[in-house]
Amino acid sequence: MRHEHESKQKNHTVRNVILTVILILLVSVGAYAARKYYNIKHAVDNTYQSAGIKKDRNASSEIQSKRPISILLMGTDTGALGRSYKGRTDTMMLITMNPKTDKTTITSIPRDTGVTIPGYESESPSKINAAYSFGSSGTAIKTVQEMLNVPIDFYAVMNMGGMEKVVNAVGGVTMTPTLSFKYDGYTFTKGESTHMNGKKALAYSRMRYDDPNGDYGRQTRQREVIMAIMGKAGSISSLLNKNFLDSISAQMKTDLTFSDLTAIAQNYRGARKTVSQTHLQGTGGTVNGQSMELMAKSELQRVTNLNRKNLGLDHATTGNIALGTSATSSSSNSSVQNANVNAGN
Rank of each mutant, 00 (worst) to 15 (best):
R2F: 07
H5C: 14
S7V: 13
S7C: 05
H12K: 13
N16D: 08
I18D: 10
I22G: 09
I24P: 08
L25F: 14
S28G: 15
G30L: 05
Y37E: 13
H42D: 06
H42P: 01
V44D: 06
V44M: 00
D45Q: 09
T47S: 12
Y48N: 11
G52H: 13
G52F: 08
K54C: 02
S60I: 10
S61P: 02
I63E: 04
P68R: 02
P68W: 07
I71K: 00
I71C: 09
I71Q: 05
M74K: 08
T76R: 02
D77V: 01
T78K: 09
L81E: 06
G82I: 12
S84C: 09
Y85H: 13
M92Y: 06
M93F: 04
L94E: 09
I95H: 12
N98P: 06
N98A: 11
K103Y: 00
T107N: 08
T107S: 05
S108D: 10
P110M: 11
D112P: 09
G114L: 01
I117P: 08
G119T: 07
Y120F: 14
S122N: 12
S124A: 01
P125R: 01
I128T: 06
N129K: 00
A130V: 00
A131T: 06
Y132G: 04
S137C: 10
G138H: 04
T139F: 08
T139K: 13
A140V: 11
I141M: 14
N149W: 03
N149V: 05
P151G: 11
F154C: 10
V157I: 15
M160G: 00
E164C: 09
V170Y: 11
G172H: 02
V173R: 03
M175T: 05
T176G: 10
T178G: 03
L179G: 06
L179K: 08
S180W: 10
Y186D: 00
E192Q: 15
T194Q: 12
M196S: 06
N197A: 11
G198S: 11
K199L: 05
K199D: 12
K200E: 15
A201Y: 01
R208I: 00
D211N: 03
P212G: 04
G214V: 03
G214I: 02
Y216H: 10
Y216G: 10
R218N: 06
R218G: 01
T220G: 07
M227E: 15
G231I: 03
A233T: 01
I236S: 03
I236T: 11
S238F: 01
S238E: 14
S247V: 05
D255H: 03
L261S: 05
A263M: 13
A265D: 07
N267C: 07
Y268P: 01
R269G: 13
A271V: 07
R272P: 04
V275K: 04
H279N: 14
Q281L: 13
Q281M: 14
G282W: 08
M292W: 00
E293W: 02
L294G: 06
A296Q: 11
V303E: 03
N305S: 12
L306N: 01
R308C: 07
N310I: 03
G312I: 09
T317N: 14
N320D: 15
S330Q: 05
S335M: 04
S335G: 09
V336S: 10
Q337W: 06
A339W: 04
N340L: 00
G344M: 05
